[in-house]
């Protein structure tokens, strides 16, 4: 996984609440077997609905945005990791929102994408700044969003997740390297106390 330290980019404003993962990545493209190349279907319906103004990610300079600023409960709904793969494939490395769907939030960290959760007031200032098209800086080391006018907005993130993102550390590798002994111990303890939990398909 690519280590994440700092991103400087225009930020695409998407001021809508409850953007679900069906909107981010419609279900009919879930038939694809590979996690690569999915950016082509990101927000598929929105980018091709032909109604009114073109979708933000189709409009320069936002078509090259590495930051997406969205409304609350972004990524709610389905667990499809394709939503994150598609965002990452498009080039998005950071999503800023007041809140996230929980499964989407967890999926981000496994793909080098940083979800930044912020209260309504600072989130609103970032949204306003994003709309100007001026670059915004996100620094994971100092846990700050720097706006074009120089204001620094701090954000919270779980320390373990921050460390893993910054190191580009793969969680499965880490568990296989460090925790297999503990897993084995747990399994033998469990076999002794709750043997009935061992599944048997007849």
């Amino acid at each position: 996984m690519t280590p994440f330290t700092r991103v400087v980019s225009v930020a695409a404003p998407l001021p809508e609440t409850d953007i679900d993962t069906d909107i981010i990545f419609p279900a009919r493209f879930l038939l694809l077997l590979d996690r690569r190349g999915l950016g082509a279907h990101l927000f598929h319906e929105r980018r091709r609905d032909g109604v009114g103004a073109r979708f933000v990610l189709d409009r320069p300079p936002f078509d090259r945005a590495q930051i997406l600023v969205a409304g609350r409960n972004f990524g709610c709904g389905s667990s499809r990791e394709h939503a994150v793969w598609a965002l990452a494939d498009f080039g998005v490395r950071v999503v800023v929102a007041p809140s996230f769907g929980e499964i989407f939030y967890a999926n981000c960290f496994r793909n080098g994408v940083l979800p930044v959760r912020l209260e309504a007031a600072p989130h609103g200032r970032i949204m306003t700044a994003a709309e100007t098209g001026a670059p915004i800086e996100i620094d994971l080391g100092s846990q700050t969003v720097r706006l074009p006018d120089g204001e620094d907005i701090p954000f919270e993130i779980e320390p373990g997740r921050r460390r893993d993102l910054m190191l580009g550390r793969d969680e499965i590798d880490a568990i296989l390297a460090d925790d297999i002994g503990d897993i084995r111990d747990y399994e033998s303890r469990r076999r002794a106390t709750r043997a009935w939990l061992d599944p048997r398909l007849k």
Partner: peptide, 30 residues
């Protein structure tokens, strides 16, 4: 699959996960 919470009806701790987490469960059972 996000609707894995269905199984909670039996008093199981059941939850939906992404594909990377599926991979983790296959590899480590954790």
């Amino acid at each position: 699959d996000s609707h894995t919470c269905t199984h909670g009806a039996f008093g199981a701790l059941a939850f939906g996960i992404g594909s990377s987490e599926c991979e983790c469960v296959l590899a480590t059972q954790t």
